[in-house]
Amino acid sequence: MEIKDKIVPLLQEQFPETNFEVTDFRGDLKIKFDASLIVPVGNFLKQHDELKFNMCEDVTAVDWATKKKRFTIIYHIYSLENKFRLRLACDVEENHPHIESVVPVWKSANWYERETYDMYGIKFDNHPDLRRMYMPEEYEYYPLRKEYPLMGIPGDLTLPKK
């Protein structure tokens, strides 16, 4: 039995009341579930003896530009032992978008979450050091949101005097 077929039954067994939405597109396994469960699910996937998803490769978000469930937070985690990559997805709302930070589970998520905060304005609760990653600290906007224009808002970033 391949690792790919094991993950979902194991998860379902551990979290019987949760609805896991599974998609398999071009061989990428994606599991979507409720945002409040990200830390327990992450802990389970990391510490399970067979799965061992010990590396968090990426955290990002997708802005769907819809009223309901505007953002989806995407986690890519990798199991060095099984050589398998898994994608986790959680929807969050537009109004005060927030999700529990996974830094206690995967240390490397620290900067990825900061980057996501910088680009989308999604708050990661209990993040040790939630600052902007790229843009200046006093910057007001979140550039990767769909309503933000490509060329920026005139005057939002300052230039030195000539």
């Binding site: 790229y134 490509l150 060329m151 920026g152 970033l157 230039l159």
Partner: peptide, 14 residues
């Protein structure tokens, strides 16, 4: 780089 973070030519300040 036609984007929000890039200065469109340094002659804007130099």
């Amino acid at each position: 780089y036609r984007s929000y973070s890039v200065v469109q030519g340094i002659d804007h300040f130099l």
